[in-house]
């Protein structure tokens, strides 16, 4: 029996509802309809009175979650698409993210963001928001790349006493399958070396982990061993694992699907440059989407975001230096 990344997210919510009486779900179309992606399919039937449809009011959805958290609840909020979370941005970064620091009141809310691009989705159903939220203090930003991480990290998110932005990748929803969910392995805040290597390091996360692995496999044919590091959580960021990998390889490419200005990849490169400059044999590189809105047509979309082919090209440039 295999499980998709999307089913893992549903199963994790099932488990959260089953084991934590303080959990409830709130989001648009998530009750009887089961959500735009069916990530909450049947949960309103299985847990009556704990799965609620919300009006199209992202600001009020997050505000309600913060209030509920003050009263001891652990709400999971589904944004229909990560892109729409900008309409709840203020409540996330100013209300939820400051609550603990200002008032010593923890804010255990999980905000699920169906993130990233899929062909034909266009500028407003494709965005990756992790960099935006990671910029603000008081938030934990998770970016699972595997079925197991989607499951366990969502459960971890619900159990954390802090607001979590859970960036689940829509491209992985149906493409990614696992035979079974194993035991919990790594805690939040730890990166995973998904492929060991010694010629160069690729640091990446979410769907780009899979593009990077494909690029690494391609370069293997030319005798290059590329190490791929999956950040898993972009905030906190596991700098130690990144630096240890760079110490082994001397070269780093950081790949992200978000827009290029600033962001997670820039943060990784900044940390490596300032803390491991002496370990580098080549200037650190980064690869992101292009600096335009995300295009609709697949021909454009495929060129807009990094792919195994553009990652491979970047790695060859890095290795040639």
């Amino acid at each position: 029996m295999s499980m998709t990344y999307l089913e893992a997210i549903r199963e994790a919510q099932y488990e959260a509802l089953r084991t934590h009486p303080s959990v409830f779900l709130y989001g648009q179309d998530i009750a009887a309809f089961g959500g735009a992606f069916k990530a909450t399919k049947n949960l309103s039937k299985e847990f009556p009175g704990r799965v609620f449809d919300a009006p199209i009011s992202e600001d009020a959805m997050v505000g309600l979650a913060v209030g509920a958290a003050i009263e001891g609840a652990r709400p999971i909020i589904e944004m229909q698409f990560a892109d729409f979370s900008t309409c709840g941005f203020n409540q996330i970064v100013n209300q939820a993210a400051t609550l603990y620091w200002r008032t010593n009141t923890s804010c255990p809310i999980t905000i699920r963001l169906p993130s990233g691009g899929t062909a034909g989705s266009g500028p407003f159903h494709s965005q990756s928001m992790e960099s935006l939220y990671a910029h603000y203090p008081g938030l934990v930003i998770l970016t699972p790349a595997t079925v197991e991480d989607a499951y366990w990290m969502l459960l971890d998110a619900v159990e954390l006493d802090d607001p979590v932005i859970f960036c689940e990748h829509k491209f992985l929803y149906y493409h990614l399958k696992a035979d079974q969910i194993g035991e919990r392995t790594l805690p939040i805040g730890k990166a995973r070396i998904v492929r060991p290597g010694r010629h160069a390091t690729v640091v990446t996360y979410s769907a780009m982990v899979h593009e990077s692995i494909r690029a690494a496999e391609e370069l293997q044919k030319d005798g290059y061993q590329i190490e791929v590091v999956d950040l898993r959580s972009v905030k906190p960021m596991d700098t130690d694992t990144i630096l240890a990998s760079v110490a082994r390889t001397g070269r780093i490419l950081c790949v992200g699907e978000a827009f290029p200005w600033g962001g997670v990849t820039a943060e990784v490169i900044a940390r490596v440059s300032s803390e491991a400059f002496h370990l580098l044999d080549a200037p650190p590189m980064r690869l992101n989407a292009k600096d335009t809105p995300i295009p609709y047509h697949p021909n454009l979309w495929k060129s807009h975001r990094p792919t195994s082919s553009s990652i491979g090209d970047a790695l060859r440039r890095l290795l040639r230096y």
Partner: peptide, 8 residues
């Protein structure tokens, strides 16, 4: 922004 918090 406080009203939805009170709601919650």
């Amino acid at each position: 922004s406080l009203l939805s918090v009170v709601n919650g």
